[in-house]
Amino acid sequence: MNRGNRVALACCYWALVVYVFVPLILMIVMGFKDSKFIGFPIQSWTLDWYAGVFSDAEVLYTFGYSVLIAVLSTLISVIVGTWIAVLLEGRKFWGRAVMFGLMVLPALVPGIISAIAFRIYARWLGIEPGIGAIVWAHAVHNVPFVSLVIMARLSTLPKSQIEAARDLGADALIAFMRVTLPYLVPAILGASVFCLLLSFDDFVRSFFLGGYEPTLPVLIFAMLRSGMSPEINAIATAALVLTAAIGIWAERFTRQNSKESQV
């Protein structure tokens, strides 16, 4: 009885693995097909689509543009998110619950509504659609994720360490820089990678706040509107490899780090 249960549950797990991996594998395979038509059967193989895409100046520019936006917005999110987390964690004050609610708000607003709200606000502030508007929208949207990760890490910092630093003569700022901040480094790195990926992958905010230069997801979307082609597979695969590699690296890094701090 128990054994049958176990096998059935294992099947559910592997079925989900198939569901989430097969579409991506098919997409990668299609990028090597020697024909303009997406679909099976595949008769011959080629690398031409990759060669074409990587010598296309527009695609390369878009790639760099997306990375730049991701890096800039992540810098803002991490600084602001950490500041808010340090304020909210382990402190009781009037209005804390309200502040916490406001902090998570951008993460809960459905994508399209958040994009529309940012678009309207950007216009009201006088920010033109383009890189500035996208960086700003991504930064605001990613702050809650940073704050939540940092708060989780801060809650495990023994208060005695800070008190010890203060007893030894450090003022609040030095204690923060030399005790709290080093303790937060793994969490900050983890949150940064998460923000980078969120920003690089984001479509809806980039789409509504972008000017004439598309980010990578917006470019793929625009190309898809005019039909599927193996070039899109090549671009999408390149983006996939980049994001998955960063994700796996970050996962390994944070796991190593948490192991060290446990000892």
Binding site: D201, F203, P217, I248
Partner: peptide
């Protein structure tokens, strides 16, 4: 972690992958 990997890939790329999976000449 195995399940997490595909979720680092963006919304548009994964949507496109589903288009290839379910198309008339799809898998």
């Amino acid at each position: 972690l195995l399940l997490l990997i595909p979720f680092w890939v963006g919304e548009i790329v994964r949507t496109y992958a589903i288009m290839i999976l379910l198309g008339n000449t799809g898998a």
